[in-house]
């Protein structure tokens, strides 16, 4: 069969490389997970920094975001892998360290903006009420503002996860054994491009689809209402929790 030069029998050869693809999926997921969690924590710090009234906190945070949003991730990956890490440690620490570091630093900049916007979108009466009860600023942030702001951040943070998963394919340039790299290896081995890259695309689609489902589930659980859903309170009832 021949459709635009696509050959079905080629997929048999790809199947024989399945180990490589499976490893690639794990590498992609690993890079994404480390980059996302690290990027979230760092983004929280930078995002709060951008809300600070103190200039020596605000400006570093602002410039950080400006730099990592204003330069291509591909350039950042190359800078970190070929320049930053070798000059700090004298040798490379492997693609996983440089790759996840680059993804983390990059997604932190985007997360910082999401977190800043989430906090700013809350009515300032919430902070005033907390402060008027005698809470110091940080306590009010932790107990009152952030729990509410996180809810509003869930949809954009979900988008960020999917974007990061796809962007992680850029680490292929530093010969990371990720999903795209597996496709590249097969493409090189057979000088065939349709089938390996199509396989890669479908596998990415599958991964983003699963992520999307996960995000939907989380979004629904933390929907607009703060009142626990009936099912949840029934469970509490059943295990003998507070029922009043």
């Amino acid at each position: 069969m021949d459709f635009l030069g696509l050959r079905i029998e080629m997929f048999e050869n790809i199947w024989s490389y399945r180990e490589l693809f499976i490893r690639g999926i794990w590498v992609t997921l690993g890079l994404t997970a480390v980059g996302y969690v690290g990027g979230f924590i760092l983004g929280l710090i930078v995002g709060m920094g951008k809300l600070s009234k103190r200039k020596w906190i605000y400006y570093p945070a602002k410039y950080y975001v400006d730099f990592f949003r204003g330069t291509p991730l591909l350039v950042q990956i190359l800078l970190i892998h070929t320049a930053l890490i070798p000059s700090m440690f004298g040798h490379s620490l492997g693609f996983f360290v440089s790759g996840s570091l680059a993804l983390m630093l990059n997604s932190a900049a985007y997360n910082a903006e999401i977190i800043r916007a989430g906090i700013q979108s809350l009515d300032k009466g919430q902070m005033e009420a907390a402060r008027s009860l005698g809470m110091p600023h940080n306590t009010a942030m932790k107990l009152i503002i952030l729990p509410q702001a996180f809810r509003r951040m869930i949809p954009p943070l979900g988008n960020e996860l999917i974007a990061l998963l796809k962007d992680s394919s850029l680490v292929t340039v530093i010969a990371a054994g990720d999903l795209l790299y597996a496709g590249k290896v097969v493409a090189g081995a057979y000088s065939r491009f349709w089938e390996p890259y199509l396989t890669v695309a479908i596998l990415y689609l599958l991964l983003t689809f699963i992520c999307g489902k996960l995000i939907n589930y989380i979004e629904n659980r933390f929907s607009n209402s703060y009142v626990p859903s009936p099912r949840k309170s029934l469970k509490r009832f059943a295990v003998g929790g507070r029922t009043r």
Binding site: Q126, E128, A129, S132, G134, Q148, Y226
Partner: peptide
């Protein structure tokens, strides 16, 4: 100021209860 505010209760027009 936190010590002062502990001694001064405040009620707002918009209630400002913590919804969560």
């Amino acid at each position: 100021i936190n010590d002062i505010r502990r001694e001064v209760g405040m009620v707002f027009q918009q209630f400002n209860l913590f919804p969560h």
